[in-house]
Simulated assay, not measured.
Amino acid sequence: TTPDSIQRQVWDGKLPVCFVLPEDPDVPPLYSLVPRVGYFPALLDRLRAHLSRHAGIDEDSPGAQQLWLRSAGRPLRWHLPVGLLYDLERPKPPPLPWEVEIRTRDFPTDELVSFGPNNSLESYFLYCLKEADALKHRARVINEMGEREHRQLWQGLLNDQFDQFSVVNRKLMEGEAKYLPFRIYQQGADGGLSVLQCLAKPHREDSTPLTLSDLLRICLPNFTDPVTLATHGVSLPMETPLAWAYDKLAYPDNFLHLVLQPGRCNSAGDGESSAMQLDSSSES
C-alpha cells in the first residue's frame, strides 16, 4: 500500500448516517453517507431544508437555527470530526446506519459549541490548523499562506475534494516537525470525555522513532492496563511509529486523533466503507 493511497483511503472513508426527528415520527428519516473526516455542522443547511420540506419548520425559525444532534442519549460534540465521534463509541459502536437524532429545542450551551455567523465552522477549522502548525513549525507555514490558500483548504474539505485540499495541505505536512500534533481521547460510561495532549517529538533521544507505546508512557506514565489506540475505525499496533501514523492518518485539521480503548490490538475495522489495510513499513 503506497503512502498516498493510505491518505486517500482515509479521506474517502464514509459513515452511513440516518438522521431522525424523534419529536415528529411522521417526518421521514434522512439518510446520508457522511465523510469521516468532515464535521456534522457542515450538514446543518441540508438538515434545515429537510425539516422545512417534511416538518413545516421554517429554515429561519429559532428551532431550525438552534439545531443540535444527539446519539445514544448524549449530545454529539460536533466540533470534533465525524469519524472520531463514531470511534469514541468503540469497542461497541452503534450499528450502521448510525442513527443520529435531530433536536430543535433546549440547545445544550454548556456542552456544545454553537456555530453561526460570528463563530463559523470555517474559522474553527482554521484555528485548529494554526494550533497544529504552531506545534510543528511555530506556525510559520500557516502564517506564510495567503487567505486564498486558507480558503482552498476549507473548500476542499467542505466539498469533499481531496486533490483541491491536499495540494495546499502538503505544505503543512512537509518539513521537520518539532512536535507532532495529536490528541488521545477516552469516553467514560457516563459520557464524559477525557482528552490527553502532551509534547511529543518524532524521535527518541537515541534518534529511533517514537512509537505509540512510547507515547502512552509519556502521557500516562502510571497506566498499566492493556490498551490500544484506534483511529479511522482501525486499532493500531502499539509498535507503530508515531511519525508514520501522523503522516498517514492525521485528520484534515492536522491532528492525529486517537481513541484509547481497553484490550490489545485488533486490526479489524468496524464495517463502514473504505476499510483500510495499514502497513507502517511503507516508505514516506
Rank of each mutant, 00 (worst) to 15 (best):
T2L: 07
I6E: 02
I6P: 01
W11R: 06
G13A: 14
C18N: 14
E23K: 01
P28Q: 03
S32K: 13
F40M: 09
A42M: 15
L44T: 07
L44I: 12
D45A: 15
L47C: 12
S52V: 00
D60W: 05
W68G: 00
W68N: 01
L69G: 02
S71R: 15
G73F: 06
L80I: 03
G83A: 01
Y86C: 04
R90Y: 10
I102D: 03
I102G: 05
T104Y: 08
T104P: 00
T109L: 07
D110N: 08
E111I: 08
V113L: 11
S114Y: 15
F115L: 10
P117A: 11
N118F: 08
N119G: 13
F125S: 06
K130T: 11
A132G: 01
H137G: 08
I142K: 02
G156R: 05
Q161E: 14
R170S: 12
K178L: 09
L180Y: 09
C198L: 08
K201G: 15
K201V: 05
K201Y: 02
H203S: 03
H203V: 12
S207I: 02
L210T: 13
L210A: 10
T211E: 06
T211Q: 10
S213T: 13
S213Y: 11
D214S: 03
L220C: 12
V227A: 12
L229A: 11
L229Q: 05
S235Y: 00
L236H: 12
M238K: 11
T240V: 10
T240K: 02
P241R: 10
L242N: 05
A245H: 06
Y246I: 00
Y251Q: 07
Y251L: 02
D253A: 03
V259T: 15
L260T: 01
C265E: 15
A275K: 02
M276V: 06
L278M: 02
S282K: 03
S284M: 03
